[in-house]
Simulated scan of single mutants.
Amino acid sequence: MLSVITHLNSLKFMAPAVVMMGSAPPYFVLFSGWRIVSCVLPERWHRAVDDCIWGTYQRLVEFFFESYTGTEVVLYGDVNTLDQPESVIYMCNHQTTMDWVVANMIAIRGGMLGHMRFILKDGLKYMPLYGWVFGQHGGVYVKRAKKFDEKNAARFHKKLDVLRKKDIPTWMVIFPEGTRYNPYNLELIKASQAFAFKNGLAVTNHVLSPKIKAVNMCVQGLRGHTSAVYDVTIAYSNTGEECSWMETVERRPAPGMPEFLQSRCPRIHVHIRRIPLETVPEDEESCHRWLHELFEEKDNMLSDFYSDDPEKRGHLEGKGHSTHLSLASTLPALAFTCAVMAPLVGTSYGRQLYWKIWLFGSLAGITWMKLFT
């Protein structure tokens, strides 16, 4: 019986994963096909449809990670800022691949899901199909500090210039820590704390010391285009919230996508602070201290979240507002995806075409990213 239950639970992850990953080829064709067709059309038409395709796929993702799992999203802080769509820089603490999905959850509530762009690790540009699409949709690939050369910086600036000069609505998502925080990775945490101590910065326990290079370039490159920084702090309920009142809290690693789809994290706590961009320092050194202070405040919030004190444990700063996404927001994207997939998987010719898209599309995308990014 236990093995049957375990098998059924694994299917809760496998079925959504098959649909989301399996639908990559038709969405790749939509993206690349529209890019070719729109070459002779006005730029605003290209952007409008491109954002629509992106938003549709992300709504499919949202269907599985929120509607399907029944996850409760609890919002704190400047929640009302989501009532008015605006171009912003979205920065948050980084614990898991789920942080990408949480950015979707916030963006869809702010009416900006189709306008999301990401600052990404350079190696991700070689992901089959996805790497090319992320880059074409305005994503910026950056190398780690020791390999971040003038060539990489020039491409970074060029991407931001396009967004700013063409006034393209944007949520630019960046994870300043540069890598994921894992409470069991003591070596990484100690290295981060040593860096902070060496540079006269506050030592943190629940977040890593943020890196400034890409953040500062992003802030300065998008001045006059984005109106604010959304400083976001995320805490997952299964990392320490769910303890009895008498237990000592031990922070556990945040759930990955498979664990999340198996409903192992019933709640996500998200604190949002809106910071007008004009208040962010311009020079790199001052910007670094400003950024580190934000992460000190995140650390304090998370220290309370994982506190042994039951009065502080399990919630972030301020009053939480529980929210659920309506099925009407995500179900049409699932229906559209199934309709597009049906002829590809339902016929012999379609299946042959499907695998050719995976193979040749991936090779073409990887080659493009190798040569031009």
Rank of each mutant, 00 (worst) to 15 (best):
T6Q: 13
H7D: 12
K12C: 15
F13R: 13
M20F: 15
M21I: 15
S23L: 10
S23H: 09
F31N: 06
G33S: 07
W34I: 04
V37E: 08
W45C: 12
H46G: 01
R47V: 11
A48W: 07
V49R: 08
C52N: 10
C52Q: 09
I53Y: 02
I53P: 00
T56K: 05
F63C: 06
F65D: 00
T71V: 14
V79Q: 04
N80P: 00
T81S: 14
S87Y: 00
I89A: 13
N93F: 08
Q95E: 03
W100G: 08
V101I: 10
L113M: 11
M116L: 15
M127Y: 14
M127C: 15
V133P: 02
G139F: 08
V142L: 05
K143Y: 12
A145N: 09
K147G: 04
D149N: 13
E150R: 13
K151E: 04
D161F: 07
K165A: 09
K165Y: 06
D167P: 13
D167L: 14
I168V: 05
M172R: 07
R180C: 02
R180Y: 05
P183S: 11
Q193E: 12
A196W: 00
A196K: 01
F197Y: 03
V203D: 08
T204R: 00
H206F: 04
L208F: 03
L208E: 00
R223C: 06
S227G: 11
V232K: 10
G240E: 05
S244N: 07
S244R: 05
P253C: 10
C265L: 02
R267C: 10
I268S: 00
T279I: 13
H288G: 07
E297F: 08
E297M: 13
L302N: 11
L302M: 14
F305D: 00
S307P: 14
S307Q: 14
D308C: 11
D309M: 13
K312C: 13
R313H: 08
G314Y: 11
S322E: 14
S326K: 15
T330R: 12
A335V: 15
T337I: 10
P343G: 01
Y349D: 10
W355D: 10
I357L: 10
I357S: 09
W358K: 11
L359A: 11
F360R: 09
S362A: 10
I366H: 15
I366W: 14
K370E: 12
F372H: 14
F372D: 15
T373S: 03
